[in-house]
Design a protein around this nucleic acid. Structure first.
Length: 491
RNA sequence: GGUCGGUUAGCCGAGUGGUUAGGCAACGGUCUGCAAAACCGUCUACGGCGGUUCGAAUCCGCCACCGACCUCCA
């Protein structure tokens, strides 16, 4: 099989993936700040790196996948009087900050489960790793790259840049950063506008605070990822992922902190997913143009023509390459919905078609193409295109226009199970197990449709059409087949 | 302003220096009492202008437009 190749943002090249420790992979992905409902934008990194996680597992690696929950230390802006996002939300909703954290963590996890995103191996919270973050800050001070002022500790970017390459991930030059940064606040304690806080002293009104050697306060945002990633994955680990918007300053800061703490780069492969746009513009909380996942799944947003199932969203996202921008539109979503349906229908057909003596299909060729596509930096659009070629194969066997022998049929079944179900995750295991109500509904609809079959036998088209049309109005789509009928709930 | 990326048929979205990506829609057909659904088939595009080349949508240059980052953001 071909090598697994991934694009490394650090080198701006596609590189063959080789883990640090053979057979094992450590990966860390920046998770959400839990101060609001997850929106469509959040689903992209989650799904992208879920795909990577699933594929690495499929390849036989033992993967430790860390995705954090940011529940503290994320300032609303970088001014010194910056307020914590969680604390602000808590104030607005008159809740204990940890109630906010718990509420949105729960809803994030639920949304992820709906999208068939597997839970990571470890999901650490920033508030649960204050001790580790303090230790990291101490290391930065000890190595001379951080300094304390009035109980707060800042990373000394200028000093760091004089020894190491600051900006190598984002392609920034320190002099450009200076000329492009707005003027320093007169009363700022920072030595330079480029410095970032690794520990902040809390003002009296701050609720979220912890003791530290410098002050009662809270850690800076960038620090949590350094502390938690290296705690669970070691001082050097394989893959770090996240949204493109985190590249600077967040990930750049992580590299600097890692260098300051350990003297070497913490990450071997940096991976960044592109953003989801809406009307060509980034979908973001600060822009207020986002659609939450709950809204998407229920159709309750003015921009939505209908509800879209979580797996449709997943398919929509994976039909584009993760490094390309993806624009939201009802048209595109509905196209995805239809396409997915066609793919899944073919997958279930696989259990029904019969094998023959000989095969007219090139199944192993198809398999090779599928692996070549995903091995090429997770090229899911090409992978899905190949899977659709296979759909045509499956349908022609079903139509009797092609044949497949039993070995090829088994291969085909394994291929589709591996890719469609296990790797791409297009079939949720959490499909309803059939509640009592659903059982009753099924029986009632079947009863009506059997009556319709009788009416059709008697050429009583009026009754037959009345049953069909009434069911359609109720949201039940009736499909006639040679053998009788099938139906499904269209909601 | 700086840095980076993009501009592909009605829509979404891959990709390679020369051979049809794929999906959706549309159109034609099969099926059907009629439909719907399903299936099959058709639909040859790459921002503009130059250049390199036997040949460029694919490489180079210029221009236009769009976006991201440069402040929190997935």
């Amino acid at each position: 099989m071909s090598d697994f190749i991934i694009y490394n943002t650090l080198s701006r090249k596609k590189e063959i993936f080789k883990p640090l420790n053979p057979g094992h992979v450590g990966m860390y992905v920046c998770g959400p700040t839990v101060y609001g409902e997850a929106h469509l934008g959040h689903s992209r990194p989650a799904i992208t790196f879920d795909l990577l996680f699933r594929y690495l597992n499929h390849l036989g690696y033992k993967v430790r996948y860390i995705r954090n929950i940011t529940d503290v230390g994320h300032l609303v802006n970088d001014a010194d009087e910056g307020e914590d996002k969680i604390a602000r939300k808590a104030k607005v909703e008159e809740l204990e900050p940890m109630e906010i954290v718990q509420r949105y963590t729960n809803s994030y996890r639920w949304n992820m489960a709906q999208l068939n995103v597997l839970p990571p191996s470890i999901e650490p919270t920033a508030s649960g790793h204050i001790i580790e973050q303090i230790a990291a800050v101490e290391k930065m001070i000890a190595s001379g790259f951080a300094y304390e002022v009035n109980g707060s500790v800042y990373f000394d970017v200028e000093k760091f840049a004089s020894v190491h390459a600051y900006g190598k991930l984002s392609g920034r030059k320190i002099e450009d950063l200076y000329s492009n940064t707005r003027d320093l606040d007169a009363q700022s304690e920072k030595r330079s506008s480029l410095d970032f806080a690794v520990w902040k002293s809390a003002l009296p009104e701050h609720i979220m605070r912890w003791p530290s050697p410098w002050s009662e306060g809270f850690p800076g945002w960038h620090t949590e990822c350094t502390a938690m990633s290296t705690k669970y994955l070691g001082e050097t680990f394989d893959i770090h992922g996240g949204g493109l918007d985190l590249l600077f300053p967040h990930h750049e800061a992580e590299i600097a902190q890692g260098m300051a703490c350990f003297g070497h780069d913490p990450v071997r492969y940096w991976m960044h997913n592109n953003l989801i746009t809406i009307n060509g513009q980034k979908m973001g909380k600060s822009l207020g143009n986002f659609i939450t996942l709950d809204e998407l799944f229920s159709g309750s947003h003015p921009l939505l023509e209908k509800a879209y199932s979580p797996i449709t969203i997943r398919f929509f996202i994976l039909q584009a390459h993760y490094r390309s921008p993806l624009d939201f539109s009802n048209e595109a979503l509905q196209a995805a919905e239809k396409g997915l349906e066609r793919l899944l229908k073919a997958v279930s057909l696989l259990d029904e078609i019969q094998s023959s003596e000989s095969s007219t299909l090139d199944v192993s060729g198809l398999k090779e193409k599928c692996y070549a596509a995903i091995n090429d930096d997770l090229n899911t659009p090409v992978l899905i295109a190949h899977l659709f070629d296979g759909v045509k194969m499956i349908n022609s066997v079903n139509d009797g226009k092609a044949t497949v022998n039993s070995a090829d049929l088994e291969l085909l079944k394994k291929l589709y199970n591996d890719f469609v179900i296990d790797i791409l995750g297009f079939k949720s295991e959490a499909v309803s197990g059939g509640s009592a109500n659903e059982e009753v509904l099924k029986n009632v609809v079947d009863l009506l449709l059997n009556l319709r079959v009788e009416a059709k036998k008697n050429k009583d088209w009026a009754t037959s059409d009345k049953i069909r049309n009434s069911l359609t109005e109720l949201g039940i789509e009736v499909k006639d087949t040679k053998e009788g009928f099938t139906w499904e709930l269209k909601k």
